[in-house]
């Protein structure tokens, strides 16, 4: 089995509290991994640890991506290398124009890859098709980044960033929370569009609904800072019915 990202015995704390307690997880290229688990289990903490969030202090273990440890890499380097997190709670940044932000991010990536950067007009042309697919009004990108966006609009804007940046490891932290039915469909369509047999997805969710759309290959159950079970999609209906209490550790 080949691996895109490998998380080994990861232990991490936030403040004084240890949240990840020896977590192991392997992400395979081209596969969709879903993570489910109770509130407070450490799902968001794991996703933040992968992208190098300042809140998280790594106590032990390792995260390797394409065979190299990324723990020492800055957040922006990880992003440039193709790791992307759609945040559970995207932050609002008043005064920063969304289109300008998106273009700056894309150009940082193009530059990193030694490609030509896009000017504002070229960028807007690129943008159009994504906006249409996500059902986003064009004024969404002329506004300040996430400022005053509804919950669903923020999530769509995260997916828009994913579509633009074309990352290789895509972590979606509760992308489906708070979405109406149309938004869920649009967002899932965006995600499916990125599936190319090479990109890897880590989808954190509480609901089976999004999994119906994006068809995961693996379900991992994260509980009390560890992955306690890995199975196929057949685990979802079981969890829906019995909850997390009855899950036996692998």
């Amino acid at each position: 089995m080949s691996t895109t990202m490998k998380i080994e015995n990861l232990q991490a704390k936030i403040g004084d509290k240890q949240i990840l307690k020896g977590l192991n997880l392997e992400l395979e290229p081209g596969k969709v991994h879903a993570i489910m688990g109770p509130n407070g289990a450490g799902k968001s903490t794991l996703s933040k640890a992968i992208v190098g969030h300042y809140d998280i202090e790594i106590l032990g273990g390792d995260i390797t991506y394409k065979g190299k440890s990324i723990l020492e890499m800055e957040a922006e380097e990880r992003a440039l290398e193709g790791v992307f997190l759609s945040f559970q709670h995207p932050v609002e940044i008043p005064g920063v124009n969304n289109a300008y932000f998106l273009r700056t991010a894309l150009n940082a990536k193009l530059k990193h890859e030694g490609k030509d950067e896009l000017n504002a007009a070229e960028f807007l042309r690129e943008m159009k098709k994504h906006l249409e697919m996500l059902g986003m009004k064009s004024d969404m990108i002329s506004r300040s980044l996430n400022e005053g966006f509804s919950g669903g609009e923020k999530k769509r804007n995260e997916i828009l960033q994913m579509l633009i940046l074309e990352p290789e490891v895509i972590i979606l932290d509760e992308i489906d929370s708070g979405l109406d039915i149309d938004a869920l469909r649009a967002v899932s369509e965006g995600i499916n569009k990125m599936k190319d047999g090479k990109r890897t997805f880590l989808v954190i969710t509480h609901y089976s609904r999004i999994l119906d759309y994006i068809e995961p290959d693996y379900i991992h159950v994260l509980k009390d800072g560890k992955v306690i079970k890995t199975a196929g999609p057949e685990l979802v209906p079981y969890l829906e019915e019995h909850g997390y209490d009855g899950i036996e550790e692998d």
Binding site: G52, F87, V91, A105, H112
Partner: peptide, 14 residues
């Protein structure tokens, strides 16, 4: 800090 991190997590330098 949160805003800075958000931008950096999209590959924008510090």
């Amino acid at each position: 800090e949160k805003q800075l991190f958000y931008l950096q997590s999209r590959g924008i330098s510090h």
